[in-house]
Amino acid sequence: MFYRMLAIILMLVGVTFAVPVSAQIAVIVNPANSVALTSDELTRLFTGRSSALTAVNLAESSPLRSEFDEKGVGRSSAQLKAHWSKLMFTGKGTPPTELATEAEVLAYVAQNPNAIGYVNAASVTAAVKVALTLD
């Protein structure tokens, strides 16, 4: 009984804290895309300063999102939201479409030759191409 309870507690703790603290993030593009992506261009794409590719984001509730905001764009999620509200309420830009899951990002990028997104490096499939890996 005690061991079962311990196991349940460990499981709960595990569920709560098993979120990877620092996952490798793969920036993915369509396999047809031969772009040589720099981290500078990645920032430009995800801040609306470049529309060379169509960026898709993970939803704000996704833990990978805030990690990507920091590592890929170099800003906190709140700073980026402030940035996009500047553009949005002055008619100068629309933030990247948000998709709920990594599976949706993978499917979107696989289907759209012009798309760019990101997923956990472990989730990458053969249907997409890794353009940049963020540690």
Partner: peptide
């Protein structure tokens, strides 16, 4: 000017 009413932006 453009977003002075959008307090969240600054």
């Amino acid at each position: 000017s453009d977003f002075k009413d959008v307090g969240y932006a600054y």
